[in-house]
Design a protein around this nucleic acid. Structure first.
Lengths: 348, 348
DNA sequence: CTGAAAGCGCTTACAG
DNA sequence: CTGAAAGCGCTTACAG
């Protein structure tokens, strides 16, 4: 019975099956499916119809072996568990699948040294190119493979990044206009390029109108223990009216730490974040934050990567895989200020 | 100059290159690398050494074409943007790469109907099997391909799931022991199997000792608008001492809503969540919650899937790909209560 | 214990 | 405009 059921499963249909059924050559079928070859529209239509009827699904393995390209892109993140990962992965997957590419994920399990290994694994798996989102401050070893980088300010090669500096400028200007003159910026890692850009932008927008103090959470926790209070309450009681976090994670900590002590947000203290993480609307008050345009970033990265890949396949000589640094370029995508309830005018 | 640089890139080394260099057959090399064939340990060692020297990397495309298997598993989520995705993806990726498999991601962009499409795309891309995390209440159409499901309580086939019911029992017992007799449960989607399991467990642990009321956020928001207050404050003022959310997202909302109104957590109200999302320790007070053992769940799912895949490849007849429902089984993995500061004894 | 050969499914020059 | 052939790199029966 099981055997019968299994025999019902039609064996996989391939090009030759269709060619045979129609009495044409495999080449004709191939050309009809890809639309590439010089083939009459009539025959092509007939072939496509038949292929459809027979439930033809091209074999990626066959194609990959012949063309030397797998149609798969590797997405490398230092730490998949990062809360931004969902947004990044979704945007990249959408952009890639629009272009007919699949996304293979690689994780270095939070271990910076493992990043190189994760990259090799992906290349060995046949990824045509890599999209890398490096961890704060990490340098990626030069790779002999098409690569696009996200948020890696000073790396050669195709890099696309949110305009973190301008994001800092935007939120800084916003706070200035609200009348805040005494501001604490809350950052995570002091060696993060992204956070330093954001901070730089904020300072440049605020320097002549406000006092700005910076707290680095990571450094504080190293001293005081993980999860320690950030000491925002006394600050709020002594004139600080705004807490601008460089990531929503720290903004969350600020909001709850203040509220817990009975300090009203935004009545007595404004709190803002960065990234518009998914839960930012699930807190009360909802978080004012800067949102990256991930769709745009993903589109640019994927487009740049695919361009490299397809150029390489037409390169002279028997040399698969280019060097990835032929045309360095960095593209910055504007961020958007999302105003919600956690921010308001400075109290008098 | 560029030409010179490119000529330095060694053309890809393949099996025959090694065979030629050593004067042995390609078969010998293949056997030496895989450790499968009957080949003398001496020759095998020589071959492996040479392969290493020459920088041999096996071609996945060649192998896939020949064996009919790609070494890639598809991970399908209804919505990649879900905050649990990082944990799931990381655990699955780790489990798979330990077994030598890669993970291809599929996203139905939040659209339930697109789930079937995402699945087909992954299969067409050559995924040997699929790991599916269905959306609340979704039924997956029967697929003629190896599949493992996560958190799909009543689906036939290999299913692994956190023991949500027991998780509910655990948190319910915990609240009972703390002396809470008037409890509000906050859920998201009323049609979520996962949430209903959790709720059922809680009720069963509490029913004879506490009054339990349930608020479904989704339903509330449909009426009152998204982001509306959940009305927890008046409840807290009228005798409710504990708010048990069925997901951390709602627990976050509860904590902030209560604190914002000056109700101390956990002094006047206990709040608990589910899932131990990454930011749960970034709120003040840190969130008491139930944690799934994602590593274990991922390991079981991946193992079950790979077993199916490798069985099928030895199946009788020219039938690649089995039916995926030969040996139904559901495995439940215990959850773990993580006690942090947001919970405490019921106030007198 | 080892080698020669066939073939997985596709695409791409090359003939006609 | 269409067909016949070669070959991408691998593994697996089959001979020896």
């Amino acid at each position: 019975m099981q055997r019968e059921a299994m025999n019902k499963v039609q064996a996989r249909v391939n090009l030759s099956d269709i060619a045979r059924a129609l009495g044409v050559s495999a080449a004709a079928v191939s050309n009809a499916m890809s639309g590439k070859g010089r083939i009459s529209e009539d025959l092509a239509a007939t072939i496509r119809k038949k292929a459809d009827e027979m439930g033809y699904v091209p074999s990626v393995a066959g194609r990959a072996l012949r063309t030397g390209r797998s149609g798969v892109l590797g997405l490398v993140l230092a730490d998949i568990a990062h809360p931004l990962f969902p947004q990044i992965a979704q945007a990249i997957e959408n952009a890639a699948s629009d272009k007919g590419y699949g996304i293979l994920i690689g994780d270095s399990r939070g271990d910076i040294n493992a990043q190189t290994k994760a990259i090799s694994r992906l290349i060995e798996r046949g990824a045509d190119g890599l999209i890398i989102v490096p961890r704060h401050g990490t340098r990626i070893a030069h790779i002999n493979h098409p690569v696009a980088m996200i948020d890696a300010p000073s790396t050669p090669g195709n890099t696309v990044s949110a305009d973190h500096w301008d994001g800092g400028v935007q939120i800084g200007s916003y706070l200035r206009k609200l009348g805040h003159r005494n501001i604490i910026v809350i950052g995570g890692y002091q060696d993060s390029n992204v956070q330093n850009d954001r901070l730089g932008g904020m300072k440049s927008a605020l320097s002549d109108s406000a006092r700005v103090e910076v707290i680095w959470v990571e450094a504080l926790e190293t001293q005081m223990g993980s999860g320690c209070p950030l000491g925002l309450v006394p600050k709020a009681q002594h004139g600080v009216t705004a807490f601008a976090a460089l990531s929503d994670l720290h903004a969350l900590r600020a909001v709850t730490e203040l509220q817990r002590a009975g300090i009203d947000v935004p009545g007595r203290a404004t709190v803002t974040g960065f990234d518009d993480l998914i839960w930012s609307i699930n807190i009360s008050p909802a978080l004012t934050t800067m949102r990256m345009n991930m769709e745009e970033i993903a589109n640019i990265a994927v487009r740049a990567l695919i361009t490299q890949i397809e150029q390489n396949s037409h390169a002279e000589g028997p040399v698969p895989g280019g060097t990835g640094d032929e045309e360095p370029s960095t593209k910055r995508v504007p961020m958007e200020l999302v105003i919600r309830d956690s921010s308001g005018p400075a109290p008098p």
